[in-house]
Design a protein around this nucleic acid. Structure first.
Lengths: 160, 160
DNA sequence: CTGCCTGCAAACGATTTGCACCAGC
DNA sequence: GCTGGTGCAAATCGTTTGCAGGCAG
């Protein structure tokens, strides 16, 4: 967790809330903090578990609502994952994803060349803001399941 | 419905099932046929509705199971859509997607140049098979909601 | 103060599962 | 005939909602 991301919301969250006329609650602070510290693409429940260590009485509903609020404001993002549970990420700068079709593992991929693609033109009918590339395949552990202690998540018809 | 896709599974499905030692049932035939005819990225229920016109007694559960089976065999794909319901597509050849962050509409994008990106190397730890690009923005109707009859789907914290 | 936010519990909706029967091979 | 597929209904599980009290501004 580079301090760049870990502290991203530390000072910024006050500005974010002020700009959007949102009350800055302690729940909002810890939820965004927990998301930015997580290196992966956590589910709502994973964030909830993290946050409960600091704030044991926070409700799961509140976590849902906070993530939804900030997603709509484009402060965080819901990641595109073929599983059935929602996953979030705090990075909104351009980057790409590696997805394992076998176990569902998803990792970030940074590649400056891939960040410079020309956007499709107006003929699409869309006003495009951004893009990201999803690379699909098998992660190292699913390619060579040498370690007998196999992955937790079974193969759940992941499609991409 | 271009005959290229509309008939994709017409003859091929027998081969597909034989290759995977799957019994070729009438349900499998009509579900794959319905998916390949749909121009968009239908949900399970949309496919179910289509199929019921031909086969009124087919169960929704069966549609779920057939789609899951063929997704695992890589015959069809589950598309990455930020909504909460699963969506499928019959196209497994490389192509890209346009996603509207406001209403969730998703369209295919074909662009030969975008199909030729260099895959990331081994340093990722993934054995990559394919990729697709998701372009995010606003569709024409969400950019200029001139028609007073606005879109059906509300803005549901779509994140991408 | 006042309005938005939170917590709780119930509602909701998509997906999955157990089981008995049926169809493809 | 045997094996796996299907249909039904119930169970599951992630997510949303209604409402009463609490906190930020």
């Amino acid at each position: 967790m580079g301090e760049g991301d870990a502290t991203r919301f530390g000072a910024e969250i006050e500005k974010i809330c002020r700009e959007h006329s949102l009350p800055l609650t302690s729940q909002r602070r810890v939820v965004l903090e927990a998301l930015s510290v997580r290196p992966t693409h956590p589910t709502v429940d994973e964030i909830w578990e993290d946050v409960r260590r600091t704030m044991p009485d926070i409700s799961r509903t509140t976590v849902y609502r906070i993530l939804e609020t900030f997603t709509r404001l484009r402060v965080i993002r819901k990641v595109c994952h073929p599983g059935t549970v929602a996953r979030y990420e705090s990075r909104t700068s351009r980057h790409h994803h590696l997805l394992c079709l076998q176990c569902g593992r998803m990792e970030d991929l940074d590649d400056a060349a891939l960040d410079r693609l020309a956007l499709p033109g107006k003929e699409t009918g869309f006003q495009i803001e951004d893009y990201s590339i999803q690379f699909r395949g098998l992660c190292s552990q699913c390619v060579s399941p040498s370690d007998t202690g196999s992955r937790k998540r079974g193969s759940q018809a992941i499609g991409g």
